[in-house]
Structures are given as structure tokens and as C-alpha cells.
Design a protein around this nucleic acid. Structure first.
Length: 406
DNA sequence: TCTGGGGTCCTAGGACCC
DNA sequence: TCTGGGGTCCTAGGACCC
């Protein structure tokens, strides 16, 4: 029956503080490489600095803030150790994200001679003592309820939601604070005079069926202590999609420049695909206008590919259909999906294996060069306008147009 | 809240088939 | 040419999460 949710507090910033004692007690943020805050320590949060805030704002608010690049390898190590501590108690551990886990602690009372609350607290203490970071822990009967509980008191909190106190907690929980309910759905429910989690839980099944879709029915059941979401111990398998998107400034309505941005994203998406030995059968591209509207289009390749030069033809066609110079664009993006192993590529009857092999060898060399001399050392000619812009920042060697070289 | 980047899942509606 | 009913596959787009 009982589940716990462990949520590390200000995880990235906490890891930095755990490693470097000089940072402790001070406002620390990570995200230097993206120019926005990825994580903010509680000292920084107190000043109103939270995720997503531009770093120049951080400097304005707090000139002495410590601003760091993200060290993902380090955080992964902390993450792994946190999960390992949980697994000392039970094998039923779900690594939900880098800083969160669910665990099913059913049946542990007798062997450990402790109540479930005491078990949860001892897990929490072990993590905090051994890793030097704090975590907040929630104990309840379903995942949705444990998420409410772990969020209740932060940092370093422990909260139990039981059969008896559940109504009190739900009455004080707004719809948007529920896992899986965002602004849109909250506003929609408000129309039916449902304003908090308790009113939602109390709504009739008939109402839920008629007015909401499947995910919201599941949340409703979980709020009523019915276990719908299971703790999944298996590791997340391969990607279903790989996306790359980049905002550029200033925004532009110049076709060549916007297309170059898109071209870079296509290249980057395929770099990632090749690193994971994946090839894509489909690709979706989008343009984001300055007023945050999206125009999207999907294209399908003749065969699965992991090479951007094969994708650029269809990408260009789609781009021309989407693009209009009467709009100003601030970002482009690409998502490749229908992924499969690049080594089991199904050859179309009409393909010329020789050409494919040549392209494969070219990109082997490209990936090799990138490893030796840094990312983006070789790129498509269509990406040139973007790369020239970055030229001042970085030394590089560019092949004028790889696509034509093949 | 003048707003970054990387993901997942679900659904409505059209195309196509029997 | 229009009429029914049902299944499946695909695409566009919405909503949400970390």
C-alpha cells in the first residue's frame, strides 16, 4: 500500500554546495551555459531567483550570486547514489528523473521494526547524511498523493498523507499543484466550480467521464487512493524522439537566416541520434513566431536515416511551405522520431547501397573530427549563416557544403 | 512571469479499407 | 451516385512534466 516519493531540493545547486563548502549558505545558481537559471539554491530562491530566470536578471537582483555551469556528470553520480540508498530498503524503486524517485515500501514494517513514517524518515536521513544534500519525502498510498506530500514542506520536509488526513491536504491543494494538471485544465475545471484537489476528488465518476479525458480520470482515481500508476523498476529504454530547438536573438524574418537556424537544429538532432546509434523515419519541423505561435509540419523519409544531408531536402520543402516573410521568427525546432537502430536500416528496393555507405563513411569522419576538435567543426553549407554569426566566438574549420560533397 | 530546452502521452479527425 | 457501419492507420496539435 504505502509509497514514498523522494524529491531532492534544488538538486543541481545542492550538489555544487555539497562538493564545494565555500558555496554553502550562499545564493548559487547553475545554468551558465544556457544563460538562464537551471537550478537555484534556497538562498537564491529567497531572493526571488527561480528556474528560467535570465542570468542577467540574476546579476541585477544579486550581484554576489555564484553562477555556475551545469556539471551533469556530477549530478548523475549524486543521483545514482541516491537511488542506491533507496534500493537498500527495497528493489521496488522507480528512477523517475535525475532528482526524483518513487519507492514501494509495502511489507517493510515487520523486518525493519518501524512504522512506514519511520522508514521514510530513515531513508531521508541516510540520503542527507551520506550525500550532503537535502531531500523532501512524501508518504501516501498513490503516486499522485505522494507527489502532493513531498511538495508540501520543502526543503528537507517529510509529509504523510493518510486515509484520515487526506481531505485536509486536498482541500489546501490547488488544481495546478496536482501532478498532471496544468493551467489549461485548471481553468477548464474552474468553469464547473471545481477549484481545489478535494473538490476534484469528490466529483462524480459520471462528471469525470463526460467532461475529461483518460489522464484526468486516472489522476482522479489516484486522488481517491486507487493505485493506477505503478512503480516501474525497469530502466527507461531508448528515446522515442529527439528534438533540438534554439531561440535566436534578435528575431528575424529573413528566410535564409531562419532556415540556417533550422539547418543547425537538424544537424544537432542527428548528431545526437548517431551518438545513440539511432536512425529516424520521420521528422517534424516548426517555426516559432515572435508572438509565440507555432507553425509545424511533418515529413517522412523514404528510409530511416541518421544523416542530416538526407533530411535537408524534405526540410527545405517543409520550411518553404511554413515560412512567410511577413512574420518575425524567434526560434526554430526539429523533432525526429519513429526511431530505430541505425544498424538495422531497411533498404528500400531502389536505394543504391553504395551511396548510403559513402554517406555513412563521411559522417563517421565528421563525428570523428568533432570528437577531436570539438563539436560543430564540420557542418552543412545551409547552416553557414548561423556559424558565421558564431565565428567571432570560436575558431573553426568549415567545409563549405558537405551535402554536395557526397 | 515579455517567457529556454528536452521530452511523453493523448485525442480528434481524415484517409482508406472491407 | 448515394447509401450504412466499423476498423485501422496516420497526422496535427494540445497539454503537461522536469
Amino acid at each position: 500500500m504505502p509509497l514514498i516519493h523522494v524529491d531532492a531540493d534544488a538538486f543541481f545547486a545542492s550538489c555544487e554546495q555539497a562538493i564545494n563548502p565555500a558555496y554553502r549558505g550562499k545564493p548559487v545558481v547553475t545554468g551558465l551555459e544556457r544563460k538562464i537559471v537551471s537550478a537555484a539554491s534556497y538562498e537564491a530562491k529567497k531572493l526571488g531567483i527561480k528556474r528560467g530566470v535570465p542570468l542577467w536578471d540574476v546579476k541585477k537582483i544579486c550581484p554576489e550570486a555564484i553562477i555556475l555551469p551545469s556539471h551533469y556528470e556530477t549530478y548523475s553520480l549524486f543521483s545514482k547514489r541516491m537511488f542506491d540508498i533507496l534500493r537498500r530498503y527495497t528493489s521496488q524503486v522507480e528512477e523517475y528523473s535525475i532528482d526524483e524517485a518513487f519507492a514501494d515500501i509495502t511489507g517493510l514494517r515487520r523486518p525493519l521494526h518501524k512504522s512506514y513514517a519511520q522508514i521514510a524518515i530513515s531513508v531521508k536521513n541516510a540520503i542527507e547524511k551520506e550525500l550532503g544534500i537535502t531531500v523532501s519525502v512524501g508518504l501516501a498510498s498513490t503516486k499522485v498523493l505522494t507527489k502532493i506530500a513531498s511538495k508540501w514542506k520543502k526543503p528537507s520536509g517529510f509529509t504523510e498523507i493518510s486515509y484520515y488526513n487526506r481531505p485536509d491536504f486536498l482541500k489546501k491543494t490547488s488544481l495546478e499543484d496536482l501532478w498532471g494538471i496544468g493551467r489549461q485544465t485548471a481553468a477548464y475545471l474552474n468553469k464547473f466550480r471545481v477549484y481545489n484537489a478535494w473538490q476534484y476528488a469528490q466529483a462524480s465518476e459520471d462528471f469525470i467521464d463526460k467532461k475529461l479525458s483518460k489522464p484526468y480520470k486516472e489522476i482522479w482515481r489516484e486522488l481517491n487512493e486507487e493505485r493506477v500508476y505503478q512503480v516501474s523498476t525497469q530502466e527507461k529504454d531508448e528515446y522515442k524522439s529527439i528534438g533540438k530547438t534554439k531561440t535566436f536573438s534578435p528575431p528575424s524574418s529573413e528566410a535564409q537566416y531562419v532556415f540556417a537556424q533550422l539547418s543547425k537544429n537538424v544537424e544537432n538532432a542527428f548528431i545526437k541520434a548517431r551518438r545513440h546509434n539511432l536512425a529516424a523515419k520521420k521528422m517534424m519541423i516548426f517555426l516559432k513566431t515572435n508572438d509565440f505561435r507555432y507553425r509545424t509540419m511533418e515529413v517522412r523519409f523514404n528510409r530511416a536515416t541518421c544523416f542530416p544531408n538526407e533530411a535537408m531536402g524534405p526540410a527545405k520543402q517543409a520550411f518553404l511551405k511554413l515560412f512567410s516573410s511577413s512574420f518575425v521568427y524567434r526560434a526554430t525546432g526539429v523533432v525526429i522520431f519513429s526511431l530505430q537502430s541505425r544498424f538495422s536500416l531497411q533498404m528500400n528496393l531502389f536505394e543504391k547501397p553504395l551511396t548510403i555507405e559513402k554517406i555513412g563513411r563521411v559522417y563517421e569522419a565528421v563525428d570523428d573530427l568533432s570528437q577531436k576538435y570539438g563539436k560543430h567543426i564540420v557542418f552543412l553549407g545551409s547552416s553557414l549563416p548561423v556559424m558565421e554569426k558564431q565565428k567571432k566566438e570560436r575558431q573553426f574549420i568549415g567545409l563549405p557544403c558537405l551535402g554536395q560533397a557526397t
